[in-house]
Write a protein that binds this DNA or RNA. Sequence first.
RNA 1: GGUCCCGUAGCUCAGCUGGAUAGAGCAACAGAUUUCUAAUCUGUGGGUCACAGGUUCGAAUCCUGUCGGGAUCACCA
Length: 591
Amino acid sequence: MNIELSLKKAIQEALLALYQVDEEVVLQPTKKDFEGNYTYVVFPLVKSLRKNPAEIGNAIGQYLQEKNDFVNGFNVVQGFLNIVLNDSVWIDTLNAILANDNFGTLPANGKSVMVEFSSPNTNKPLHLGHLRNNFLGAAVSNILQAGGFDVTKTCLVNDRGVHICKSMLAYQKFGNGATPESLGIKGDHLAGKFYVEFDKAYKAEISQLITEGKTEEEAKKIAPLMLETQEMLQKWEQGDEETMALWRKMNDWVFAGFAETYQKIGVSFDKVYYESNTYLLGKDVVDEGLANGIFFKKENGSVWIDLKEEGLDEKLVLRADGTSVYITQDLGTTDLKFNDYHNDKSIWVVGNEQDYHFQVLFAIMKRLGRAYADGCYHLSYGMVDLPSGKMKSREGTVVDADELVAEMIETAAETTRERGKIDDFSKEEAENLFQMLALGALKYFLLKVEPKKRMLFNPAESIDFQGNTGPFIQYTHARICSILRKAESIQVPVNKQVKAVDLLKPESELIYILNEYPVAVKKAGDDYSPAVIANYVYDLAKTFNQFYAEVSIMNETDSEKQQFRLSLIKAVAGTISKAMELLGVKVPTRM
RNA sequence: GGUCCCGUAGCUCAGCUGGAUAGAGCAACAGAUUUCUAAUCUGUGGGUCACAGGUUCGAAUCCUGUCGGGAUCACCA
């Protein structure tokens, strides 16, 4: 059994035997400045037992030490009972970790979850904000899988609508038959380019109209380009051949571009939904809601739901002209997703500007009596801001994902070459490494921050490779591999089980942290927070580096100690690798 | 204006199911490499945990209010 659980149980028994108190025991790691491994806080008992904290602490400590051979000693400081465990506990713990190839993978819980993320618009390339979304979605999927869920990753592609028509219209007008090949750019960048051009031309029309005496509001509505866009949208909805052909052509370009980016950043999906196939869904849900009186119709024919009881407001679910709004579609696709996969839980990775939308969506689903409503969760994340403020695709003030990745790879290459440690690498090996480091830095940078917090990205300072970073952790892994290679080269075995040895403080600390890994996996899953894993693995790497600076392995003359350390660092390397994999980051064996 | 999120060191962030003297990284300064990778490690300086009340033996953490920042409240998506 896990040592922390054993200790909790032992304390529980002590409380029962000594004070006839039966309660849940909570332990915390002992602070570095004190002697001990785990600390039990006795303050809460003081009142009911009418004894002073030291007395209680000593009594429990005594009892523990007498009854449990894994308790080696204890000390009481104020109301804190610090418990020192026997070295053999750590040896046993390490052996259990070494014996478990799936360490950190929790048993299957028989539940399934769908994670929807990425969800790009086909009128522009991916930018930094999308990267945060993609990395979050992919990492949360991995974490839930490790947490015992059966996971389906999905993406709902926003491939239709006014904004898509804007790109199409601008291309039709100013494109001169250009192709990604003729322009030498990826298809998604081509679409984005014309989206920006649309906005430029549209703004010019607006200011022209304003000089002619129109108000800005009027001008926006009657600008020829806007009218043409709306006309195009109607044609699209009617299936007009020419419009559809253009739409298909441009979307194919965009998808090819996206595929390249996804491949590069290592993101994939089990199922892709296209909004062009789903945008008409949801009207039957509206009928259903009207039939059972959950929705109501206003005089002009529009359909609403009153959510004041939930602390929300009235919400429109169908326009007066009978066409869908955003939430109508979501009502339909939510049902669709559930009918396709029957998941116990469903997660949407979507920015926090849609917090209200999801509150409303889930509230409606609950009112409609959908069994899955309670399993719905909006994984809301904060915007990625630039020092200059918000990113706006229309104005072209975005950090483009492809460019950023390319720059990161370049930086990784320079940084690595400066150090001259991989001069014997083939070109392919080197490029593989640069990409690993670049994406490691980028992913770790975006994932280490709690999702709901907005974060600042400073392109000038870019992303570090030192300190609390992906490459730091990758480096730690490479360091360990280097020692393991050395051991192998002189035929020192790395065993799957270790014998009892006297432990140094850095050694038991390392085992303590290793033992916490499954706890981190559980917590990361419960909180839907890859940041928990990022912080965990940083802590593990940092602790290893302290150990590394203090303790030599290959110079150790006691062969049992040496073999113990080799097995220990192998477990550390394995855990670093697994944890980073959950974040979608690969780790090198040399760098 | 209503609702939601955030406010911790110069900067970027942990800690938030209440517990010991609030921790890391970056930046600054001082050290460590004949020894397993110095993308590392050790040390120094740096804090009214936005502010004010409250609950508690104990509050960065829970409650209330104030201030500051952001988001949202469309017959847009």
